[in-house]
């Protein structure tokens, strides 16, 4: 499969800012991947995401050079109307992206804006509600929902537009641990069922390493590390760039250092991997 997202030599500087928010950025993401973008706060993650769905340069001015290509067309040359149908964007705070008084109306919001005929809209709204398993909330008002439910409603509104690429900006930051891990399971399921590509900004890597194909680490507006989560997290540099190393990986690293590398084999990322490694040694 081809690359759904290609960033080529991207530089962006906000107006009146002394330095670039994103510098010399190169990235290719093949269709159907789950890619995680990590890095310290203020490292340019949010800016980078906004260059992908076109808010930069269409809504925000600034110095822009290089190119971002989504599904074969340049973001600079595409209208927000076209981009909205290719790139879905789930913002950090679900509250501020729910506009309507009932869940189903809100899921339909993007489709209404595009002028989709009613019958088709109805079936796409129902499909999105079913995918996120929130059909029972269809008639609820936004203020009657929990944070996790709001997050699902907002994601349903994004998916109803059938984007090829979905961006999730710190989707678990307002969720409790259980709801957060449910969201990650959901993302993995949607990738399987729809073949959607996901780019996720996330600090809590513990949750995502099990499902992610690629981990990109940013620092100071630049890409500093890229690879499979295993390669990046077992490298020596990840910690230096402020990446939260998953607990399992830390345990393994500590064991390896204390016992001269004979403790447990392979790069371990998730509790289940650790469990089976330990079981294997016991036998």
């Amino acid at each position: 499969m081809g690359d759904i997202l290609k960033i080529e030599g991207l530089n962006f500087r906000y107006p009146e800012s002394p330095r670039n928010a994103v510098s010399d950025f190169e990235l290719s993401i093949p269709e159907g991947e789950i890619a995680v973008l990590a890095g310290p706060s203020g490292c340019g993650k949010s800016t980078l995401l906004r260059t992908v769905n076109g808010l930069i340069p269409h809504m925000y001015g600034g110095e822009y050079s290089g190119d971002v290509i989504v599904a074969g067309s340049s973001v600079k040359g595409s209208s927000m109307r076209d981009l909205a149908q290719t790139v879905g964007f789930l913002f950090q705070n679900p509250e501020n992206q729910i506009f309507m008084f009932t869940v189903e109306r809100d899921v339909a919001f993007g489709l209404e804006n595009l002028g989709v005929p009613r019958e088709e809209m109805r079936s796409r709204v129902d499909e999105a509600l079913r995918l996120l398993r929130i059909g029972d909330l269809a008639q609820r008002a936004p203020h009657e929902l929990s944070d996790g439910q709001k997050q699902r409603v907002a994601l349903a509104g994004v998916l109803a537009m059938r984007p090829k690429l979905v961006i999730l900006d710190e989707p678990t930051s307002l969720l409790d641990p259980k709801t957060a891990s449910e969201l990650v399971t959901l993302v993995a399921r949607l990738r399987e069922e729809l073949g959607t590509t996901f780019v996720v900004v996330e600090h809590r890597l513990d949750l995502l390493v099990g499902v992610a194909d690629r981990l990109v680490v940013m620092d100071g507006g630049r890409k500093v590390l890229e690879g499979s989560p295993r390669d990046v997290l077992f490298g020596d540099d990840a910690e230096a760039h402020g990446v939260a190393i998953p607990a399992v990986t830390r345990v393994q690293k500590a064991l390896t250092e204390s016992k001269g590398g004979r403790a447990v084999a392979g790069g371990l990322l998730t509790p289940s991997e650790l469990a089976s490694a330990v079981e294997g040694r016991r036998r």
């Binding site: 927000m80 992206q97 189903e104 804006n113 002028g115 009613r118 994004v158």
Partner: peptide, 23 residues
């Protein structure tokens, strides 16, 4: 500000004649 971004991302104002789910 966040609302404005989310509106753009969901194609607010894209069609000259938006449709409606409810009838």
């Amino acid at each position: 500000g966040e609302l404005a971004e989310a509106m753009e991302a969901r194609a607010y104002g894209a069609a000259p004649k938006p449709t409606s789910l409810l009838e």
